[in-house]
């Protein structure tokens, strides 16, 4: 987040100031790229570039503060992705390699140390392996730094739906990471 300087920076960018635009880019490109990596990993960089072009073109029409700007940029990115999906078959889900995560049998500090070292890429891939609607809202909240209301507006769902989806995603994430004990034991009981 840029903070108190945001309004001045946005105004300068609207006037065509390259450095101001670069400040906006540096602040938002990493979360934007990570969000796109979760929902469309194969084309995330192209989509990000398209998003910034559209932002550049629409900048002088944008009115609002930093939160609104973030929401707008992510909304633009999502539209780009939806357009792409309309034209192409959906990207196959790339399974997360098991070695991306420490063995469940690791315990205590050793496991924590291994997890601490988990790369951002691997983390995004794991989030991206959730069901798509869960993956998207979790990504928007976690890497986008957006609240429930903002996410709801971006994905065109009700806030309550966003809340449920994100909580389910969280739970599923925990199930996978905590391994077979809870999830598969419970799953076995449920499916009997």
């Amino acid at each position: 987040m840029i903070g108190a300087d945001f309004d001045a920076i946005l105004a300068a960018a609207k006037h065509g100031d390259e450095r101001a635009f670069a400040v906006l880019y540096r602040d938002l490109q990493p979360p934007l790229l990570r969000y796109l990596r979760v929902i469309a990993p194969a084309v995330c960089e192209d989509l990000a570039a398209e998003t910034w072009l559209e932002v550049a073109r629409g900048l002088d029409r944008f009115e609002g503060g930093e939160a609104g700007f973030r929401s707008w940029v992510f909304t633009v990115a999502r539209h780009r992705m939806v357009d792409l999906r309309r034209r192409e078959a959906r990207q196959p889900v790339v399974p997360v390699p098991p070695e991306a995560f420490p063995d469940r049998s690791d315990a205590g500090d050793a496991a924590d140390a291994a997890l601490t070292a988990i790369s951002t890429r691997a983390a995004l891939a794991l989030i991206g392996s959730l069901p798509p609607d869960q993956a998207e809202v979790v990504a928007l909240r976690i890497v986008g730094g957006l609240d429930v209301a903002q996410v709801a507006a971006i994905v065109a769902k009700r806030p309550g739906t966003v809340r449920v989806l994100s909580h389910r995603g969280l739970r599923r994430l925990a199930e996978r990471l905590e391994g077979g004990v809870h999830a598969s034991g419970r799953g076995g009981a449920v499916t009997q």
């Binding site: 390259e18 635009f21 540096r26 490109q29 990493p30 951002t120 979790v138 976690i142 730094g145």
Partner: peptide
């Protein structure tokens, strides 16, 4: 921990497209 890793500080490779983006903006 996974969520924290997903939200880790930016790495330089994530900003590799800055020059192009700014050129497009210009």
């Amino acid at each position: 921990m996974v969520l924290a890793a997903a939200a880790a500080p930016p790495s330089p490779d994530e900003l590799a497209g800055e020059r192009q983006a700014v050129a497009a903006f210009t």
